[in-house]
């Protein structure tokens, strides 16, 4: 569980101060997939950093339900000097949990999601979509209870993006993880989430929250539902575009 309670965050630079987030309140329940969307530059990355505890809020409180969290970024940030397998072990090494059992679990996870033949390869030999899948498995290797996703698909071309999007969602659902996704892509948010939180332009506040329940839960099916375009229109209006 993750709870933002009246969070305000202000950036300080020599040129002045900028309030990126103001009185922000929303909740991510256990097992929920929540997307936060907003116009670009509205402080989405700040929200993710606040959620992950990399930044401390100026006021308000971020309540975490305990447990570990994993972070998945816009670019995969795979280390080219390590093999795919070694990349997946990285969080175990950093968190000093590099035991044979944990490594075995990580390898099992990678094999389960189609990376068996790639484990010994260099990330440079993989396609963009495959690299993002490795990045997700790396995030999952440390067995986080919650995932923070920072526009993890925006660096991919459109076709790859649709596939990786479905891919990531099914892995996250399959592993029963809680997830918080920040994105500026409306259709991505609708296709993936149980709940969408719409933000205003900077300073970011919550404009609306939508529970999304149509379709059978898979992003692909959901995109084909008639409700999809209706929801899209509503969100588009709320974003003011």
């Amino acid at each position: 569980m993750l709870k933002f309670e009246n969070i305000t965050y202000t950036y300080h630079t020599k040129e002045g101060e900028t309030t990126a987030v103001k009185d922000l309140t929303f909740t991510v329940e256990d097992g929920q997939f929540v997307s936060v969307i907003g116009p670009s530059g509205c402080g989405k990355t700040t929200i993710l950093s606040l959620a992950a505890g990399i930044l401390a809020p100026s006021s308000g409180e971020v309540k975490r339900g305990g447990g570990e969290f994993g972070y998945m970024l816009q670019r995969d940030a795979l280390f080219p000097w390590r093999s795919v397998e070694q990349n997946i072990f990285l969080p175990l090494e950093v968190k000093k949990r590099n035991t044979p059992e944990m490594r075995q679990k990580a390898v099992a996870l990678a094999e389960k999601y189609g990376l068996k033949d790639f484990l010994k390869k260099s990330p440079n030999q993989l396609s963009g979509g495959m690299r993002q899948r490795v990045a997700l498995i790396r995030t999952l290797a440390a067995e986080p209870d919650m995932l923070m996703l920072g526009e993890p698909f925006s660096a991919l071309d459109y076709q790859t993006r649709l596939e990786v999007c479905d891919d990531v969602q099914s892995i996250i659902k399959g592993e029963k993880k809680t997830a918080l996704l920040v994105t500026h892509d409306i259709s991505e948010a609708i296709a993936l989430s149980d709940k969408v939180v719409v933000l205003s332009a900077r300073p970011a506040r919550v404009v609306a929250e939508h529970k999304i329940a149509f379709g059978d839960g898979s992003p692909k099916k959901r995109r084909e539902c008639p409700e999809f375009s209706q929801t899209f229109e509503i969100l588009r209006k709320e974003l003011g575009i």
Binding site: K112, Y113, G114, K116, L126, S127, G128, G129, M130, Q132, R133, D157, Q159, T160, E163, V164, D167, S170, I171, G174
Partner: peptide, 11 residues
């Protein structure tokens, strides 16, 4: 769930 199809562009 078992192995997923290969990601796009991974020919």
């Amino acid at each position: 769930m078992t192995a997923l199809p290969r990601a796009a562009g991974d020919k």
